[in-house]
Structures are given as C-alpha cells and as structure tokens.
Amino acid sequence: MKKLLLLTAAAVLAAACMRLPEVPTLGTVELPVAAEEEAVWTSADYEGKPVLVVFMGSWCPYCKMSMPAVNAAAEAYDGKAEVVSVFMDADPETVMKVAKEHNLKAKALYNGGAVAQEMEVTGLPHAALFDKKHRAVKVWEGFSPTLEQEFKEHLERLTK
C-alpha cells in the first residue's frame, strides 16, 4: 500500500512539474495588402480586437467557396473585429483579381506562406480566430457549408 501511495505521489509531483502547453498566439504578423497602393497589414494595429485570419490560395476551389462566409464576417463585424484573407500567392495582381471576382470584403493579404508555416497550416482553406488578446480560440480546417454561421457564433461571443 505504501508503494502505491508513493508511486501516486510521485506521479502527481511529476505532472505538476511538467510544463503546460502554451496557447498559440497571433504574434506580430506583417503582410503586404493586395491593393492598388502599397500597404502593409500588421496584427499589432488590432490589439484589443478579435482577429479572424483565413488562409487561402487563388487556385483553391474550396477557398473560393469559403469567401461568402468571410465576406459575411467582414461586413457584420466591421469595426468590432478584424477579418483578413491571407493568400499563399506571391503575386498581388493574382490576389486582387480573385478578390475582385468574388467581391471579397476582407483585406486580401498575399505572400502568406511563411506565416502559414509558423501557424502550422496544413491545408486550405484554414481559418484561425484569435481573441482580443490575440490568443487562438478556434481553428477551422477546410470548407464547411456551416462556416458562415460558425464564424458568426464565435465572433459574436468575442465582440460583446
């Protein structure tokens, strides 16, 4: 019985000493905006606001299917949350063309490969929602027909 008690105490002590996993954060992200005039989007400009980052590719059909959900979030939470589309494309003209074709309301950023790699994005579309302190609260992998409603539900909680 003593051995079992000692083993249990040792296991509890070892667990207490283990480092808990950190909550992923947005960190400092700076990416060029696909626009007529050169501009850079930086996450630091949105401290105190939730941020929804949606990774996309101009060639990705499921990303294009996600754009109405991104548009709805960008319009509904304008001024309350920041919604951005981060394209893997390195060519701003290609991104601007796709954004225009789909009437994309969210800022279209490009050259997002390094940021996607840092955030361990493994497929497109990939959306990550960060709270007002820019801590990750929800991640979506791939397209879903319920994406618009899911964005709304989560953004609603974060913008109250």
Results as ranks from 00 to 15, higher is better:
residue 91 D to N: 15
residue 6 L to I: 05
residue 46 Y to M: 00
residue 150 E to Q: 14
residue 72 A to S: 13
residue 81 A to F: 09
residue 38 E to W: 12
residue 138 K to Y: 02
residue 130 F to K: 00
residue 118 E to H: 14
residue 15 A to M: 14
residue 89 D to S: 11
residue 132 K to T: 08
residue 159 T to S: 14
residue 24 P to G: 04
residue 25 T to K: 15
residue 67 M to V: 06
residue 118 E to K: 15
residue 145 P to R: 10
residue 125 P to V: 08
residue 114 A to K: 10
residue 139 V to I: 14
residue 99 A to H: 15
residue 159 T to L: 06
residue 61 P to C: 01
residue 14 A to W: 14
residue 49 K to R: 15
residue 33 V to C: 08
residue 121 V to D: 08
residue 123 G to M: 06
residue 13 L to W: 08
residue 57 G to R: 10
residue 49 K to H: 13
residue 119 M to R: 10
residue 88 M to W: 15
residue 73 A to M: 08
residue 94 T to R: 12
residue 6 L to S: 12
residue 53 V to F: 03
residue 36 E to Y: 10
residue 75 E to D: 14
residue 81 A to L: 11
residue 17 C to R: 13
residue 34 A to F: 03
residue 153 E to N: 13
residue 78 D to H: 15
residue 119 M to W: 03
residue 51 V to G: 02
residue 145 P to M: 06
residue 21 P to M: 09
residue 29 V to G: 03
residue 70 V to F: 09
residue 60 C to A: 01
residue 107 K to E: 07
residue 109 L to F: 12
residue 155 L to A: 09
residue 142 G to Y: 12
residue 42 T to F: 15
residue 95 V to M: 07
residue 43 S to I: 02
residue 9 A to M: 11
residue 89 D to Y: 05
residue 28 T to L: 10
residue 61 P to N: 05
residue 72 A to H: 08
residue 13 L to Q: 11
residue 95 V to C: 11
residue 88 M to R: 13
residue 68 P to A: 08
residue 18 M to K: 14
residue 4 L to D: 11
residue 14 A to T: 13
residue 55 F to H: 06
residue 86 V to L: 07
residue 89 D to H: 13
residue 89 D to N: 13
residue 20 L to M: 12
residue 92 P to S: 08
residue 66 S to I: 03
residue 90 A to K: 06
residue 63 C to K: 04
residue 32 P to L: 04
residue 104 L to A: 03
residue 106 A to L: 07
residue 87 F to P: 08
residue 2 K to M: 10
residue 84 V to R: 07
residue 144 S to C: 00
residue 70 V to N: 13
residue 49 K to C: 04
residue 149 Q to S: 14
residue 131 D to H: 12
residue 116 A to L: 02
residue 101 E to Y: 00
residue 124 L to P: 10
residue 82 E to G: 01
residue 113 G to H: 00
residue 139 V to M: 08
residue 45 D to E: 14
residue 8 T to L: 15
residue 78 D to P: 01
residue 5 L to E: 02
residue 101 E to L: 03
residue 144 S to L: 00
residue 31 L to W: 15
residue 102 H to C: 01
residue 128 A to C: 08
residue 5 L to I: 09
